[in-house]
Amino acid sequence: MVRSLSLLALILMLPGCVATPAEPVTEATVSSSTWLTITDDGVGTIHRGTPFQEKVLASVAPGAEIRPIQTAKEDTTVWTQAAFVGDVQAVQFFKGPGNTVGEVHGVAQHLAGPNGERIGMTLAQARVNRGDCRAGKSLWVGMAICKARGASHVELVFSIPDFDGPFDRLPSAEILNKAELQRIVWRAQA
């Protein structure tokens, strides 16, 4: 065993010898592990009319722990509750009318959208049409906000890394297709 490890170390030190991965490595890795699916009907156990109560919010995923966070919606920054699975923040909850859940923002790679969208996917990979998108405003300026196909309650929020403006409209199709999914937003009210 020691001899084979020494031989491997020697081979790797030789000029021109480079270990190469079996699959190409990309900058944005998209998880294939799914903790939770966001659909037009809701997010896991959370649906329209679900009470905004810690015990109920924790039922969104096995092992979820609810913690307070401060986060940005498009027009404002708010304190709210988030579900963490281990150390990973999975979703953020926002109050709606009558102390119910009004919105849920999915922010972890381990979520799937209604059409299989995942955090980290490009707009092209998520198969989103430019016509279903608008330019973000206020705190989400420079982002693309897009409707999820066939889901009137779900929007996809994409960051656009190579976009320098103008921010009151979407960039060219070439730049927009490279935008990266940051949030999957479900709203109880469409």
Rank of each mutant, 00 (worst) to 15 (best):
residue 68 P to H: 03
residue 141 V to Q: 12
residue 152 S to A: 12
residue 15 P to C: 02
residue 7 L to W: 06
residue 49 G to P: 00
residue 75 D to A: 09
residue 72 A to W: 06
residue 62 P to Q: 04
residue 23 E to R: 15
residue 86 G to Y: 05
residue 158 F to C: 01
residue 188 A to K: 04
residue 121 M to E: 10
residue 189 Q to W: 15
residue 115 N to T: 09
residue 176 L to G: 00
residue 131 G to M: 02
residue 75 D to E: 13
residue 75 D to P: 07
residue 116 G to A: 02
residue 113 G to N: 06
residue 109 Q to R: 15
residue 16 G to Y: 00
residue 183 R to S: 11
residue 150 G to L: 07
residue 41 D to G: 10
residue 95 K to N: 06
residue 73 K to R: 07
residue 155 E to T: 05
residue 132 D to G: 10
residue 46 I to W: 03
residue 4 S to Y: 09
residue 18 V to W: 06
residue 146 C to A: 00
residue 144 A to D: 00
residue 90 A to W: 14
residue 14 L to M: 08
residue 118 R to T: 11
residue 165 G to K: 13
residue 184 I to C: 11
residue 137 K to N: 09
residue 188 A to T: 10
residue 177 N to E: 12
residue 75 D to C: 15
residue 114 P to D: 02
residue 59 S to D: 13
residue 118 R to Y: 03
residue 113 G to T: 14
residue 8 L to W: 09
residue 52 F to S: 02
residue 187 R to P: 08
residue 176 L to P: 00
residue 95 K to L: 09
residue 81 Q to W: 14
residue 145 I to K: 05
residue 138 S to Y: 12
residue 116 G to T: 11
residue 53 Q to V: 10
residue 50 T to A: 01
residue 189 Q to K: 11
residue 53 Q to T: 12
residue 145 I to A: 08
residue 129 N to D: 13
residue 8 L to P: 13
residue 72 A to S: 13
residue 41 D to Q: 11
residue 120 G to I: 12
residue 45 T to M: 13
residue 159 S to P: 14
residue 82 A to M: 01
residue 43 V to S: 09
residue 92 Q to V: 04
residue 127 R to F: 15
residue 129 N to M: 07
residue 77 T to L: 11
residue 59 S to K: 06
residue 169 R to E: 10
residue 127 R to L: 13
residue 97 P to S: 07
residue 133 C to A: 01
residue 136 G to S: 04
residue 140 W to S: 13
residue 35 W to N: 09
residue 26 T to G: 11
residue 10 L to G: 15
residue 131 G to D: 14
residue 144 A to C: 06
residue 167 F to Q: 07
residue 88 V to A: 11
residue 190 A to P: 11
residue 42 G to A: 08
residue 185 V to L: 12
residue 31 S to M: 15
residue 166 P to V: 14
residue 45 T to H: 08
residue 135 A to W: 01
residue 53 Q to Y: 12
residue 69 I to H: 03
residue 176 L to K: 00
residue 53 Q to S: 10
residue 190 A to N: 10
residue 106 G to W: 08
residue 190 A to H: 04
residue 164 D to C: 06
residue 190 A to K: 11
residue 79 W to N: 09
residue 175 I to T: 06
residue 35 W to A: 14
residue 57 L to I: 00
residue 68 P to D: 03
residue 171 P to W: 02
residue 190 A to L: 06
residue 118 R to M: 00
residue 19 A to Q: 07
residue 31 S to K: 10
residue 23 E to N: 14
